[in-house]
């Protein structure tokens, strides 16, 4: 075998190994959560809130955390979308390519991306104290939206930057304004990528515990107001896993399973939507 053939085979081998590592991690996590969580999962888990003594093994469920997490991640995602989309369309449609402001904004996103989520939590908490606010769904939404904003914006920026110059020109040549071009053509062309960005950000938001622990707090009831504390699945998992009682620890795995299923559903739906919107893309 020639040297180049050997190189080729070594590289192929490395690829197989790397792929296997990724796949087996995914399978192992899913398996652990399913094997440990499924037996503890029952209808009560997803239809009831914790009753007295739930954390000691009495009945109830984590409906408070399911609803809280959906509200929180949903709200934070909506808030982050409205900011990201405007910023990113501004960067790509209005700002000049060599603009210092644009370069600085992109740099900021990179820095913000790297900041650990506990820092966002602490930052949110400081602001809350400053304004005399208590832990609430709203505070949690704001902290989580700050956490996912750089992720979403950076990902959207990448896809919108790929839109060919000629597509802008095609729209301008018809007498369209920048605003019309941005929303009717560019956002549409980048829609599959934007959707992916949104879902990645949603997944990050719904799974994060550190940013909500001080801001959204925790409660055993379903949140009914933006100004009341809200439970979240990651914290529910944390609290249940922290008890010394085995049945409650199993419920932590069941909760993790619920969280995983939510994320899986979102991913599948996003794949389908992305497919649906990809047909219009011009290359």
């Amino acid at each position: 075998m020639s040297r180049r053939n050997i190189e080729e085979n070594v590289f192929k081998g490395l690829m197989v190994v790397s792929t296997l590592i990724i796949l087996s991690t995914l399978v192992l996590i899913l398996a652990t959560v399913t094997v440990k969580g499924l037996p503890a999962l029952n209808l009560a888990m997803i239809t009831q809130t914790p009753k007295g003594g739930y954390y000691l093994g009495k009945e109830g469920g984590v409906l408070n955390a399911i609803v809280g997490s959906l509200y929180l991640a949903g709200g934070a995602t909506l808030l982050a979308i409205s900011i990201s989309l405007v910023v990113v369309l501004y960067l790509n449609v209005y700002a000049k390519k060599d603009s210092h402001l644009a370069a600085f904004t992109r740099f900021s996103f990179d820095v913000l991306w790297g900041i650990p989520s506990i820092v966002y939590g602490a930052f949110g908490f400081t602001i809350m104290i400053f304004f005399g606010l208590r832990t609430s769904l709203l505070a949690g939404i704001i902290a989580v939206s700050l956490l996912i904003l750089p992720i979403m914006s950076r990902a959207m920026d990448e896809v919108i930057r790929m839109v060919p110059e000629e597509l802008f020109d095609a729209s301008y040549a018809l007498g369209a304004t920048r605003l019309e071009t941005a929303f009717k053509v560019i956002a549409r062309q980048a829609l599959p990528g934007i959707l992916t960005a949104v879902l990645v950000a949603f997944g990050r938001g719904i799974g994060d515990a550190a940013s909500v622990i001080f801001t959204a707090g925790f409660t055993d009831s379903i949140p009914y107001s933006l100004f009341r504390p809200a439970a979240t699945l990651p914290l529910a998992i944390f609290f249940q896993l922290g008890t010394p009682i085995p049945e409650v620890q199993d419920r932590a795995y069941a909760s993790a399973l619920i969280l995983t299923v939510i994320i899986l559903i979102i991913s599948v739906v996003s794949r389908i939507l992305t497919k649906k919107f990809t047909k219009h893309i011009v290359k």
């Binding site: 597509l167 095609a170 040549a173 053509v185 062309q189 219009h280 011009v282």
Partner: peptide
């Protein structure tokens, strides 16, 4: 009206 080198239909 403008025709470019390569046609660029709008994504619709």
């Amino acid at each position: 009206g403008l025709l470019s080198q390569k046609p660029f239909p709008l994504p619709m």
